[in-house]
Every structure is written in structure tokens, then in C-alpha cells.
């Protein structure tokens, strides 16, 4: 456990050091993140105005609150891209990682947390700026604000492991971009990225609810904004726990099979 903690700490530190080398690059990349919520907020503001002030029971201010919060949750649940894992497999980088007496996912989590810390002040500044342009309507409750923290952590872990597993598909498939593309289309709709769950067709919401997607990002956002009815919150945590458990199991199986495949054919 002490080793694990030291690895997290060192990976975190290295990423902070590494990112500080490319401040301009970091700033440009983070600014590119603004584009997406701005598009959604602009579109939904116009639509609510044309629909007489609300869409699916949400006002322009609530849409604004949704996407500003979504931006924060998205930042906390940003993971190592599956492409990065694929790149390691294809370029033999995994060989070096497999020689180490520790599962490489730990190092990735530590690095990823380092990235979050460095980028967080910029994300908060952008959120503040967006709140000035698109005034949000927040109705925060102390209890849901408190529950928001474990919901984000669980959402992050589910998403991180899912993306890692997806990246491991490169052990079997040479070109994985089609698979990743398909996955991210599903993520756009089912994580509440394109629109809040409450205004999507029932069948999409039903699919999102049984899939891990809703519990990655939409649930923490709906929780803190009070969109999710109080009696459904325990169900939400239950689904998060269930999907985390399932994804850890899938990771173990896929990792073992992937390493077997890697050690059988390439190395």
C-alpha cells in the first residue's frame, strides 16, 4: 500500500512537472474545451427562448447551470484517452511497463490526477467567465453538494477503467479508431453531454440508465443541480457501485487476456 501511494505521488508530481514545461500548449488545449459547452449553451438558450422560456421544464438559466457544472464534472472525469493506450501497444511501450513490478494503471491514475490539478484553476476561471455570459440558475443543497464528491469520484473511476479497457482492445485490433469513434458517439448521447437526460427521448434515457454512461458524468451533474429526485439518489449510487465493480472485473479479465495475447505475439 505504501508503494502504491508513493507511485501515485510520484506520477502526480512528474505530470505536474511535465505539464509546466508546456504552458502555452496547455492553455491552448484548455481553451479548446470551452468551445463545446459554449455551443451547447448557445443552442439551448436560443431553443428555450423560441419555446417560450423552457424546454423539457428547464429554463435558459438551468441549461447554463447544467453545462457549467458539466464542464467541472467532465474535467474531474477526464481520463487517459484510449488512443494513448493503443499507441503504447502499437509502439511497444507496453514492454517497458510490463517489466515493472506494478500494474501500469496506477501510474496512469496518478498522472491523470496531476493533470487535473494543473488544469483546475483554468477550468474554474472559464466556468466563472461562462457564468457571466450565460447567467446560471443554481439551487444548491448542502447534502447533495456533499454527495457530489463521492459521485464524481465513482464516475471518474468508472470512466477511467472503461477507457483503459477500450484502449486495451489494441491488443487484438490493429486499427482501433472505428471502435473508439463508435464508443464516443454513444458517450455523447448517454452521458448527458449533448443534452440533459430529462429532455432526451425516454428510450435513450432508459439505455443510459442501464449502461455505465449515465453514471459517469450525468449523475453527478443531476445530483448537485437537484435535477435528480431525492428518492432516486440511492439508486444512482448503487448503479455507480455496480458498474465500478463490473468494470474492475472486466479490466482484470481483459488485462490478463491482453497480456497473454501480447506476450504470445509481439512483446
Amino acid at each position: 500500500m505504501r508503494t502504491l501511494w508513493a507511485v501515485y505521488r510520484e506520477s502526480f508530481r512528474l505530470t505536474v512537472l511535465e505539464m509546466s514545461q508546456y504552458r502555452v500548449n496547455l492553455a491552448i488545449w484548455i481553451l479548446s474545451l470551452i468551445a463545446e459547452p459554449i455551443i451547447y449553451m448557445t443552442v439551448w438558450t436560443i431553443v428555450t427562448q423560441e419555446q417560450g422560456g423552457t424546454v423539457g421544464g428547464l429554463t435558459a438559466g438551468q441549461f447554463s447551470a447544467y453545462y457549467i457544472t458539466w464542464m467541472l464534472v467532465r474535467h474531474f472525469t477526464v481520463t487517459l484517452a484510449p488512443d494513448a493506450i493503443e499507441w503504447r501497444v502499437r509502439n511497444g511501450i507496453f514492454s517497458g511497463l510490463l517489466l515493472r513490478p506494478l500494474h501500469p494503471i496506477h501510474q496512469d491514475v496518478g498522472s491523470n490526477l496531476g493533470y487535473k490539478l494543473v488544469a483546475l484553476p483554468i477550468i474554474l476561471a472559464i466556468m466563472f467567465g461562462l457564468a457571466l455570459v450565460f447567467p446560471p440558475t443554481f439551487q444548491l443543497q448542502p447534502l447533495t453538494a456533499l454527495l457530489f464528491v463521492p459521485a464524481v469520484i465513482l464516475g471518474y473511476l468508472i470512466r477511467f477503467i472503461t477507457h483503459w479497457v477500450l484502449g486495451l482492445s489494441a491488443f487484438w485490433i490493429t486499427r482501433t479508431q472505428a471502435l473508439f469513434g463508435l464508443y464516443f458517439v454513444a458517450e455523447i448521447f448517454l452521458t448527458g453531454r449533448f443534452a440533459p437526460m430529462s429532455i432526451l427521448p425516454d428510450w435513450i434515457e432508459a439505455i443510459a440508465t442501464v449502461s455505465p454512461f449515465r453514471w459517469m458524468i450525468a449523475f453527478p451533474v443531476e445530483l448537485i443541480l437537484g435535477i435528480m429526485p431525492a428518492d432516486q439518489i440511492p439508486f444512482g449510487f448503487l448503479m455507480q457501485a455496480l458498474w465500478l465493480f463490473v468494470m474492475i472485473g472486466v479490466l482484470r479479465v481483459v488485462w490478463a487476456a491482453g497480456v497473454r495475447q501480447y506476450t504470445a505475439v509481439s512483446g
Binding site: 507511485v7 512528474l14 515493472r100
Partner: peptide, 19 residues
């Protein structure tokens, strides 16, 4: 080794990984 930082920092990560 991590490309953008001194090797001494990467060595610290190895220290942690190998305990």
C-alpha cells in the same frame, strides 16, 4: 524516461515503483 523533465525525476518514479 520522461522526455520533458530531468532523468532524476523519472528515477524517483522508479524508486516508488520498485519500493
Amino acid at each position: 524516461l520522461v522526455w520533458d523533465i530531468p532523468a532524476a525525476d523519472s528515477f524517483e518514479l522508479n524508486r516508488a515503483i520498485y519500493g
